[in-house]
């Protein structure tokens, strides 16, 4: 079991105290409880820091304001969501709980749903998100949805088509969008075939057939891009045709951040070990 150092414990405590000033001691209406989120952070952080050796680039792009964080989705079991959430709590100057939007399927899962809601995750419903935005919360959105997280190996690092809901929500709230690219989460499950036909028959959002069912310790890099303002000349009433170019722009930005990030991708410790022996 990977353990926290005393310094890590102190840092988490400091972050939790800051968050309590904002959220208070009570649960919020979506079920977020800072005490429980802190306990989860104490479990996740060792994996974030030592197992996935997460590096974060671009923290200077995050100011003390509300954002909609939009990221590529990867890693089969949404490990990227956990790592981005941890980064925005632990690494940025103004710690915050990113309210991750989750699939409807997820909210019906016993235990996982409870744990996720206590840590701040919420149902990815437009009205739900709008209510969170009105309360000044920052959101974490994966506009690729299940298509992004549940990819077969040949599609890794190819951003799938974005859905439009996030941009309409950002327009309505006039909130800035921060593009984020995650590199390394795909390799936590390096060889995957998505049995889409079987998943459909079983009523599951995805059914990955993988060489491993526990995530491998692939080093993860999180790139935080510069905030993007929503178009001034658009409104939520505009057609998809009007909005699509702006969504495409964000999609292209994240794809280019991924392509750039891949140039500096670190190998898995095991691969390094094998390479070292060969040389």
């Amino acid at each position: 079991m990977i353990k926290l150092t005393n310094e890590d414990k102190l840092n988490i405590e400091k972050v939790a105290q800051t968050l309590k000033k904002h959220y208070g001691d009570h649960e919020d209406p979506w079920g977020l409880t800072i005490d429980k989120a802190q306990r989860s952070l104490e479990l996740i952080y060792p994996f974030y820091k030592y197992y996935f050796q997460t590096r974060v680039f671009g923290v200077e792009n995050v100011a003390d304001k509300q954002y909609m964080v939009v990221s590529n989705h990867s890693g089969q079991i949404a490990i990227d969501g956990l790592l981005i959430g941890t980064a925005f709590a632990m690494e940025v100057d103004h710690p915050r709980i990113l309210r991750a939007m989750v699939e409807r399927f997820f909210t019906n899962l016993p235990f996982i749903n409870k744990w996720a809601s206590e840590c701040g995750a919420v149902l990815g419903d437009r009205e739900n998100c709008q209510n969170l935005l009105e309360r000044g919360e920052s959101l974490l959105v994966f506009p690729e949805g299940v298509r992004g997280v549940a990819k077969s190996t040949p599609d890794y690092y190819n951003v799938q088509e974005f859905t439009r809901g996030f941009y309409r929500m950002a327009l309505k709230s006039n909130i800035e969008i921060i593009p984020v690219a995650v590199i390394g989460a795909e390799e936590t499950f390096p060889y995957v075939y998505q049995a889409k036909w079987l998943a459909k028959k079983l009523g599951l959002p995805a059914l990955p057939i993988s060489a491993n069912y526990l995530p491998l310790p692939s080093p993860v890099d999180i790139y935080i891009g510069k905030p993007v303002r929503v178009a001034d000349d658009l409104s939520t009433l505009d057609t998809d045709h009007d909005i699509d170019p702006y969504i495409d722009e964000i999609e292209v930005t994240i794809q280019s951040m991924i392509d750039e990030g891949l140039k500096n991708r670190r190998e898995m410790p095991l691969v390094n070990l094998i390479k070292g022996r060969k040389s």
Partner: peptide, 15 residues
């Protein structure tokens, strides 16, 4: 009446 009319469903938005 009652708030029960909305139903307690896993995909209820908050508010």
């Amino acid at each position: 009446s009652t708030h029960h009319v909305y139903g307690a469903l896993s995909d209820n938005p908050v508010y």
